[in-house]
């Protein structure tokens, strides 16, 4: 059903146009004698066609069209202006001012019906295009969601692959990722960045895939040569992820490369110092070290929470970015929740 707004201060024209619109079928006429009231109605309603007289008290048809077009979302709705036969200049002005077509008085039914049908066809086309655009946008959103979900799953599986070759556990990557999130929130990062670090942090040790088993799985302390090889995992992880078109992979590459840098410049692989170390690297450094210290491994006992906190405190400005340590400790209640949620003996769902 097409809603046709008719504005004319003359009863006879209003009645005549209404009758002609009803004769077209599938149309619901909405009548106004006063253009100001019609304009107010248009703020809350979106007619399929507007038929407006030119000469009216309070507001003429040209002014009405200008005000109507200025309303949000009304710039393309079809408008027919009614003028007298001798008002050629007004017709030109109407067409230039936003009317799609015009009708002359006295109204001729054949002409009226043809022009109204044309305008309504235009409206049907507009609606079809708008609906199609909305449908396509929805499809794109859905596909994008699916791709992001697959991407998230793939990242988790890649991270798990690296962890399987390491004494670390699946729960470790979950905990350190959530600790990273706590720090990011504490630093006031926006929701997008917080989500990004949660997804990217698990990839911090993905480069361990490229480290030989005799070093990676060595139960004792690494000798200097072995440690040099071990240190390569940061660069290997970066190499694996760096050229991805995915924002998450790119963030993962940055985290992999920089999570062993130290705030005082004594870290590796580049010996970056202070804020020259990317923020995600500084955040993950705190989260990773804290979880490694407080977790039991075949070659070591778990540190107490107090001892681990003390190490973080002592490492402020040396190993760690002081602000990251502060943000981590400020979220202590959440840290304890994460420890409860992801215990080592539990295998997280993939």
């Amino acid at each position: 059903m097409h809603q046709v707004l008719i504005i004319d201060d003359s009863d006879i024209n209003l009645t005549l146009i209404k009758a002609l619109v009803l004769k077209l079928g599938d149309c619901e006429p909405v009548l106004f004698e006063n253009p100001v009231k019609a304009l107010a109605w248009c703020r809350d309603h979106e007619p399929d066609l507007v038929i407006v007289d030119y000469m009216m008290p309070d507001m003429d048809g040209l002014k009405f069209i200008a005000a109507f077009r200025a309303l949000h979302g009304r710039d393309e709705l079809p408008v027919l202006m009614i003028t007298a036969n001798d008002q050629k200049d007004i017709r030109y002005e109407a067409l230039l001012g936003g009317a799609n077509d015009f009708l002359t008085k006295p109204i001729d039914r054949v002409e009226f019906s043809a022009r109204v049908r044309n305008m309504l066809s235009l409206r049907v086309g507009q609606k079809f295009l708008a609906d199609r655009a909305a449908y396509l946008a929805e499809m794109v959103d859905e596909r994008t969601r699916e791709i992001r979900e697959r991407e998230r799953e793939l990242i988790f599986r890649i991270s798990r692959a690296a962890e399987f070759r390491d004494p670390e556990t699946g729960a470790h990557i979950q905990r350190m990722a959530h600790y990273s999130l706590i720090i990011a929130r504490g630093l006031g990062l926006d929701d997008e960045k917080c989500k990004l670090i949660l997804q990217a942090a698990p990839m911090h040790d993905v480069g361990k895939i490229g480290i030989p088993d005799y070093i990676l799985l060595k139960p004792g302390r690494l000798n200097p040569e072995e440690f040099e090889v071990m240190k390569r995992h940061a660069v290997i992880g970066h190499e694996l992820l760096k050229d991805s078109g995915s924002e998450i992979m790119q963030a993962g590459a940055e985290v992999a490369l920089t999570h062993h840098e130290k705030y005082d410049g004594s870290g590796y692989p580049k010996g970056l110092k202070g804020t020259a170390i990317p923020l995600f690297g500084r955040i993950v450094a705190v989260a990773d070290v804290f979880d490694a210290l407080t977790s039991e491994r075949p070659y070591k006992k778990a540190w107490s929470l107090d001892d681990a906190c003390r190490l973080l405190e002592e490492g402020r400005g040396r190993h760690f970015d002081p602000l990251c340590v502060e943000a981590f400790l400020a979220g202590w209640e959440d840290v304890l929740d994460i420890r409860q949620q992801f215990r080592d003996e539990e295998i997280p769902d993939i």
């Binding site: 003359s10 109204i107 039914r109 054949v110």
Partner: peptide
Amino acid sequence: ERLGGDEDIYLMMLDVFLQD
């Protein structure tokens, strides 16, 4: 002819003319 031969609209139009 202008009203497409519609007698109903014709009569209605005359009636509104007289009312106004």
